[in-house]
Structure formats: C-alpha cells, structure tokens
Design a protein around this nucleic acid. Structure first.
Lengths: 222, 222
DNA sequence: CGGGGGCGTAGGGAACCCGTCAAGATGCGG
DNA sequence: CCGCATCTTGACGGGTTCCCTACGCCCCCG
C-alpha cells in the first residue's frame, strides 16, 4: 500500500485529494503548511509527497530542499504558478513532477502512478533474507518463528538488510529512520540495535549478522 | 555523458532540441518516426528518450509500449494533444513525463534533468582497491581478510587511496583528517601510518604501497 | 666526527563510545 | 477510562580508540 503525504493549504483540495486517493487504496496523511509537512514526512515516511508550492509559512521550494536533505521520496509539486521559471526552480530543487492548477484529477493520479512506478519497483525478488535462525521477508514484513518487530525496528532492519555487507553510518541511519532532526541521537541506535539483536541473533551478546563498527555505524553481514 | 534519443517528425524541432542538448553536453541521436525510433533505441542505448506522440507511422503510445517491452529507459513524451486522456494513456503506458506543445525549452530541460536524476544513480560499482594482500572497498568500508580499521584510520586511508600515485602533503593530511588546528602535529601521521602499514602491508617495515616521502608527505602506490 | 631534524615504535592515561538495565512518557485500542 | 505496546530518556560499567609523551634510529649537514 502506497503511503502518500498531501501538503496544501486549501482544506477543500486536501479533502478532494484524500477522498480520491483513499478510494484507490492509497494510505494518506495530510499537512496544511510547510512546517508540519516536514514533520509529517519524518514521522509518516511516505512513499510519495504531493506538495503545493503556495504554503502560508515556508516557500514550497524550501520544503523540497528540506525533504531532499535526507530522503529521496518522490515529490509531485502542485502550483497555481504556471511560469516556466517556477517549474524549473522546483524541478531542479529535487521535485519529480510539476502540475499546474487547475488540474484534472485523473491526470494527477496518472502522474502519481508514473513517479511511483519509477521510484519503487526495481526489485521484484521475494526479498527473503536469512538472519541468524530466522527468515526475514522485507516485502511482507514478516519474520519466521513468531518474532514480531515494531515499525521503527522494521525501518532500521530494512535499511541494513538492503545494503548487505555495507557499512551504514550512524548519521544516515538516524536521518533515514527517525528524521533529519535526530541526526545526533546515537542513543536510539544502541537501544534499537540491541532489540533487533535480542529478537534475531542466536546469541545477542555476540552478534554475527548485526555488527557494530565503533565510531562509525553498523553493518549487516549475511 | 548522458545519451538522449529524440524522436519527432518535425525536422525543425529535432534541430532545435539537438542544438540545445548538445550545447549542454548531452550526446544526441535522432529519429523521425516510430520504426526508426525503436531501431535507434536498440542500437544507441540512450539514457533518455524524448518522444513525440504524433508520428507518421506508429502511434506514440505504441512506441512507448515497444520500448517498455525490453528497457526501463526514462521517456519524456512531447505532444500537441493536451487532453487529459492522452496524458493518462501515455503515462500509464510507461512514460515518465508528458509535456504539451508548445513548450518552453528550459522547462523541458528541467524535466529531462528530473527524470534523469531519478533514473540514473542506482548503480555504483563497488570500487575495490588492492593494497598488499588485501582488498579495500571504500564505500562499504570493508577490508578483506578480517582486518578492521578505526574511523581515523579510514579517513587517512581514504584520503590516500582517492589520490593514487599522488603525493599528499603532511599539512593537507592533518587538516583533512584531524582538523586545521592540528596542522603541525606531524607525529600523528607517523602513528597512524604505522598502524595502517601494520594492518595492510605484507612487510610493515618495508612498505610497498604506503610510501613515505621524507619532509613532504605520503603517497599511495597501487 | 658530532649534532640535529625527521621518522618509526612503544606505552599509558583520558575521553569517548558502546551495550545494558530500568523507568517515565506517549499513543492506541478496548 | 484504563491497559498495553511502543517510543523516549536517564544512568552505569566495560571496552576501545584516541591523544600525548618518550625513546631509538637513520640520514643529512655542519
């Protein structure tokens, strides 16, 4: 289920988009200004952001910058401004598409499908990975042997498992899992890595797959 | 250098696009109809296709289908038809973006940058470097043969390995690894270079790859 | 032949980082 | 309204890494 964050200051448009997207089985979160948009993005972890440029607090292009600072989530910009320079600025800031108001809802949905298709489905493999005595399925979000993981644990584990053998810096882990404003809270890493090891490693005190690299980050070793 | 295939039946537009793209250091191939477009795509292997829908032989949407049968190359559609259904059909057929004529050339270029940016950076080769009997992967921060390096050792080694054969001055090493205020603490260099040699060189007493240039600095020799 | 600067090596103290336990705060569903 | 799961926050012990000092060696130079 694709998760979409819609950012717009017109309640009417928010409502219309939400209804249309929910009807097509998207999971929807809403934000009415740039500040809450950035906050929501960090908490909700959308697979797509639909962003109006005309926000009351922050300029839309700045919101794009703020998002691109720590995430590659696809961004479709909505705007009343039809000038070429506006489009160029938004696209070069990191937006993936630019739609001018008024727009046809079906066209917007098609563009959403296009950017989502481009961003998400490179891997069609089952994505089952063995960790310790368990088998992890990242797509189905399941672990064999009656092990349950919390949402935060899943995001952390997925980041590591998608980069097997590669070291992930603690700053990257914190920004991608918790958001850019948590880049220095290394305490969370110790806390949640310990939980993952307790749930997955045969001997949590002597991890074999979830390895600590002191001073740098963590690494998943198959 | 990004390779672009432009498909349009108007020689004038082909020419204008080619000039603009070549001026921006794209590599350009041209096609005037759907048949040659598909042939060119197979031979030229473009990183991006700019495709006019109004072709003399095949319908543009069919060209999109033909391309998507075997390649995921980004496709930006150009079209005189501004109807929503046309856009939806093209996007759902596999196009990445849809621009209606007449269009601003700068906007098209920005959209080209956007889809190229989204499609291109997924793959980066491991970038392994052989040092002594070991293989170093700077991206994954791994060394073959159960060798572990500390963060400072990594920073130092990375600086040398990214400039193979080139002499790195002591001042530069100290400022880049330890900071500007340590620019004269040359004994740190001796300390950590010795550690790197102990961990990487076959005979640490007679280094082959991590060479001292007395009075000047150090050099990595592949 | 004696002196000095640059280099390699060794060792110890301090700071930092990590793992762990525990408890408070928050949010959600019943 | 309450209970449970999850997320935050704090404190402590142990280990590693880093910083710093000291010493011996070689080469260059006087």
């Amino acid at each position: 289920m694709t998760r979409v964050l819609i950012v717009d200051d017109e309640p009417q448009l928010l409502r219309a988009l939400r209804i249309n997207l929910v009807a097509r089985h998207y999971e929807v979160a809403l934000a009415a200004d740039g500040g809450s948009a950035l906050r929501q993005a960090a908490q909700f972890h959308p697979d797509l952001v639909v962003l109006d440029l005309g926000l009351p607090d922050i300029d839309g292009v700045e919101v794009v910058h703020g998002l691109r600072g720590w995430t590659a989530v696809p961004i479709v910009v909505l705007s009343g401004r039809a000038g070429s320079q506006d489009k160029i600025d938004a696209l070069d800031a990191g937006a993936d598409d630019y739609v001018t108001k008024p727009f046809d809802i079906e066209e917007l949905l098609a563009r959403i499908r296009a950017v989502t298709r481009r961003a998400s489905p490179p891997e069609a493999q089952p994505a089952r990975i063995r960790v310790g005595g368990h088998t992890v399925d990242l797509a189905a979000k399941t672990v064999s042997g009656d092990v349950r993981l919390t949402p935060t644990e899943w995001r952390l584990l997925e980041l590591l498992l998608r980069n097997p053998g590669k070291l992930i810096g603690q700053r990257q882990m914190l920004t991608e899992v918790w958001g850019a404003s948590y880049a220095k809270e290394t305490h969370y890493l110790r806390q949640y890595m310990a939980q993952l090891r307790r749930k997955l490693e045969p001997d949590p005190a002597r991890p074999v797959h979830l390895i600590t690299e002191p001073g740098m980050g963590y690494r998943f070793t198959p």
